[in-house]
Amino acid sequence: MATPNTAATPTFMVFATLRDDTDFAEFAALREDEQKQLEVLRSQGRIGAHYVSPARRATFVEVVAADEAEVAETLATLPFARFFDAEVYPTTPPDPAEIAHRARA
């Protein structure tokens, strides 16, 4: 079960790079599924910011989770997960603006 997204919930920044052996036809075929799953995770408060750097074949995803094991569980639900090597970084507690944003969500 996902950790509730509250002001006290830890966040993690995931930096992931596209693997060299990626099958781009398969990758492209899963794009719609990836977008749908990201929306589900956002609606559940499990995913925050998400940025893509095509030039660097990288993505940055903010994950709201109790710990790194829960981050891994969340990432595993994404269809694109198998195409990326991910590094997980714990972040500092949310600042007042983020706390206010989470309270509205």
Rank of each mutant, 00 (worst) to 15 (best):
A7E: 13
H101F: 09
R57L: 06
E68C: 04
E73L: 09
E87M: 14
A29C: 06
T9D: 04
V63H: 04
I99K: 15
Q37P: 03
D23Y: 06
T74V: 15
T17Q: 15
H50L: 04
D85F: 02
A69Y: 03
A100K: 14
F60Y: 12
F27K: 06
L75T: 05
F84A: 04
R31N: 09
D20R: 13
A72C: 09
A28N: 11
L41I: 05
A29S: 14
L38C: 04
V40G: 00
M1E: 06
D33N: 05
A28K: 12
D33C: 02
A72P: 02
L38H: 02
D33Y: 00
P90A: 15
R31V: 02
E32T: 11
V63P: 04
A29H: 06
M1K: 07
A58T: 09
K36V: 03
L78K: 01
F15V: 15
Y89D: 14
V14K: 13
T6V: 04
A105E: 07
V63G: 03
H50D: 02
S43G: 10
Q37E: 12
Q44K: 10
L78W: 03
A69M: 05
D21R: 08
Y51V: 12
R46A: 13
A7K: 13
D23A: 07
E98H: 09
S43D: 10
T11N: 13
Y89L: 15
L75Q: 07
R104D: 06
F12W: 14
F80T: 00
T9P: 03
F15A: 14
E87C: 13
A2D: 08
R42L: 01
T17C: 15
P79F: 10
A72G: 10
D21P: 06
R57Y: 09
I99A: 12
P93Q: 05
R31G: 10
P79K: 08
D95A: 13
